[in-house]
Design a protein around this nucleic acid. Sequence first.
DNA 1: ACGATACGATCCGGTTCCGTATCGAAACTC
DNA 2: GAGTTTCGATACGGAACCGGATCGTATCGT
Lengths: 202, 202
Amino acid sequence: MSDMTSTADAPRSPGRPRSVRADEAIIEATLDLLAEGSTIEALSIEAIASRAGVGKATIYRRWPGKDALLLDALRRLKGILPQPAGHSVRDDLVLLVGAVGHNIDPRAVKIMPCLVPEVNRSPDHFQLYQNIIEPRRQLMRDVLRRGIRTGELRADLDVEVTMALLTGPMLVQRMLRWHPELDDRILPERIVDGVLEGIRAR
Amino acid sequence: MSDMTSTADAPRSPGRPRSVRADEAIIEATLDLLAEGSTIEALSIEAIASRAGVGKATIYRRWPGKDALLLDALRRLKGILPQPAGHSVRDDLVLLVGAVGHNIDPRAVKIMPCLVPEVNRSPDHFQLYQNIIEPRRQLMRDVLRRGIRTGELRADLDVEVTMALLTGPMLVQRMLRWHPELDDRILPERIVDGVLEGIRAR
DNA sequence: ACGATACGATCCGGTTCCGTATCGAAACTC
DNA sequence: GAGTTTCGATACGGAACCGGATCGTATCGT
């Protein structure tokens, strides 16, 4: 995508090299505008250029259009994967559930909800979203499988359903602030413990 | 809002009365366009008028702008509340969880995700959304409280957290198709049973 | 110094939408 | 029939944005 990275140090092309600062400024401006509440299609190239202190042509020189730019910008949000300690399944799950929808970049929290409609509309955007979150889901999948192996979790567990049980409540809370009175800080613990122990009386 | 309902049968005003067909056609066109994938602000009055077979002025005669029209249109999606049988807590929860994000009007499934960004941006839209779903949440709250009372559920249950546990996974699945391989038909059962019994081995 | 390219800035033609205005026809009250 | 109001249709000025083009300048290799 968008061969911006002129890291090809081989035959240095002639002429003035592209400004790395412009690359960064454009991406940052895009994320900033999204994080400030702009909708995806309310986002205009002109606004991005203005915000980045960059000419429109500079943007069109790098990306063919808004979609391609967005695609590159959203890649920046992935951030570093959380690192489960590997001791207690419960503690690892609390860590991973707490990381749902909570990326290193604080703007991600604001931006991700904006993608929901797009994800439902465009198969491409759906795939992009899946690619972004898949590594994190794989982490949780591994922890669950480990728990089954070590006997901490039921042997007949449906891993995919369990992942939905764990991530769904957290995601809904972060995206929709569905239960304004719930405390985001302790919620991961409550979710994990609730799912671990069940709610049926015994 | 928007005193379209001229149910005030008192002093019938002179002149040609407003067409009820136009009222209906405008609302329907709005919902249709949203269900077809239009974003909220990509939705234009002109498109609605064209789709409804109505002049723009006819719309502006009824609503001051797009927001007011949308507000009225979205009210139509509420539909009838599901009716828990009241026998088994599990069965009632399966019914309610299956009803999450599944309104009578099939268009609602498509439209609701479009509201996510708006809900995060505008307090007014947030309140609108809360008003729409609150009755359904109250139903589930009642079932959970009944379960606690009858001893079917743990006495120390946090009702709000439990509602998140039950509705979150379903909502994420319906909105984001997060787990493409999960079967929506049996998912409510799996969620309820998972949350009821817990996943810890014993 | 020179060619080549990128830079920010600006302008242009085209499109879309808004919100209002106006038209002749139609529908209703009195 | 006169008067009033809404009807669908159409047009308008203004605004926003797109995608491209061009300008004069800046920065690189040779």
